[in-house]
Structure formats: C-alpha cells, structure tokens
C-alpha cells in the first residue's frame, strides 16, 4: 500500500517531527516498503490463532498498593529548563 506525501506529512505532524520538504519522497518510499512488508504478513492465514499482545509468554506481575517513592522534586527539576513555584513551565498551550 503506497503512502502519499500527505500521509507522511500527517504522520510526521502526529509525531511532532519536522521534515524537510526534499526528504519527504524518501520517507514515502521507505515507509511504503515497511507497509508492504506488513501487507505480506497479513496474507498469512491466522484463523484460530489468538492475537498476541506481547512476545513474552508471561503475564503481568502486580505491585502491592503502597507508597514507596519520596519527594525528589528538586533533583528532577534541576534538569528542567524552566520552573517556578514548583511547576514546570512550558510554552503556552491553550485549549
């Protein structure tokens, strides 16, 4: 299934990636070839095979409901570009 240039732009936007105009044809080609592989896989008859959610044949271990973390705000915020009053500051997002 070949992708269009528009599809690639949309995917890039969803992933918040800035693509240079001249790189788009290459991404169209490469992503399309990945989708071709998937298409090939989809031709395999999987009737009666339960969908796999994880490659490991194991299941989730549970953690007891207990508070084990302490406040490390100062440490975490030491790598943040901008903080104030305990908050991380980011460029304004308006609903």
């Amino acid at each position: 299934m070949p992708l269009s240039g528009k599809d690639v732009e949309n995917i890039a936007h969803l992933a918040r990636l800035a693509l240079a105009e001249e790189d788009i044809p290459r991404y169209v080609r490469e992503l399309s070839s990945i989708l071709n592989l998937v298409e090939q896989l989809q031709r395999v008859d999987t009737e009666g095979v339960p969908p796999m959610a994880h490659p490991l044949d194991a299941h989730q271990r549970l953690r007891p409901d207990a508070v084990t973390e302490t406040d490390q705000r100062e440490l975490f915020q030491s790598t943040a570009p901008l903080t104030e009053a305990g908050l991380y500051l980011v460029p304004r997002v308006i609903e």
Binding site: R61, L62, R63, R73, F76, Q77, G86
Partner: peptide
C-alpha cells in the same frame, strides 16, 4: 509507588515513572 494524596505541593508526588524519564518501567498496582 508515588502517593496519590490530594492537595500536595506541585510536583512533590511525581516520581521518575510519572515523569516518563528514560529507563523507567511501569509496574501495575494490585
């Protein structure tokens, strides 16, 4: 294992997992 108590000082109950720092893994609460 960070606390869920309401009304704490901002970001004092946000641990490395909650912040999505590299290398952390989620472990489900029973």
């Amino acid at each position: 294992g960070a606390s869920t108590a309401f009304g704490a000082e901002p970001n004092t109950q946000a641990c490395a997992v909650d912040l999505g720092l590299p290398g952390v893994l989620p472990v489900l609460n029973e």
